[in-house]
Amino acid sequence: MIPPKFVYRRAGSAEEALSLVAEYGDDAKLIAGGHSLLPLMKLRLAQPEVLVDIGRVRELSYIRGEADHIAIGALTRYHDLEHSELLAEELPLLAHASGRVGDPQVRHRGTIGGSIAHGDAASDVPAVVLALDGTLVVSGPSGVREIPSGEFFHGPFETALEPEELLTEIRLPRPASSSWAFQKLTSRAIDWAVVAVAVQGRSVGLVNMGSTPLRATAVERALADGAAIPDAAAQAAEGTSPFPDRNASTAYRQHLARVLTRRALEEAGSRA
């Protein structure tokens, strides 16, 4: 539970972070809130040689209303998302889901960018961003690129990020429908989701239902075709193959996806 030795460098700006990462190359790992990376290091499952700390890059911590979208800096912490007035007004789904992550300590440290870059299918915010059709803004040695969230998550802990790239901003279009819901089933309050479902209008995102965050496309299609909520929700596990673990078998997760999707759609419907 004590990590091996590493070199620690603190970046004061996004630019400095990029140059430090370029300097150390493959040996370097960015650390934001550290709440995914440090547990892995303590168990020695991750052993980076160099940590480039971007936790204090203030310029990447913001929530801004732009003309057609909301822009969120990658270093914005859950706590700030949870309590943002702008989000409460315009994207309550994200504010609410952020408030359901872990416990207060985790929410004060963890960042939206870290959560997305980590690419853990059990994380809450990635599925929300996916359901919201977000775009991820990434800076790297070859400049800035924008990646649609639908193309970002490649596999377990694998994303479209290249080793020397920095996720800088998350752009979320203002949703057409104001109905939303977030249903997260946990064993204890502080636990990760066994399964969670994010709904915005007719978009449905699934947490922990496979190797990446997912959209429940069969449900979305059924809704578009005018299916009733229970019938649409019954298709929530279509095409999924969630991993069995101590908390849940594959079959139980699939069952939960159906139940929680129905509940989320009903809850969202009550907000419409």
């Binding site: 547990p39 168990l43 064993s187 204890r188 309050a189 502080i190 101590r246």
Partner: peptide
């Protein structure tokens, strides 16, 4: 809990779900 090889599978407080006030 242990798996069939005798590995403890709840050896961290992430996996060993002790109760908290919230429950």
């Amino acid at each position: 809990a242990y798996d069939e090889y005798g590995n403890p599978v709840t050896a961290t407080l992430m996996d060993y779900t002790f109760v908290t006030a919230a429950e």
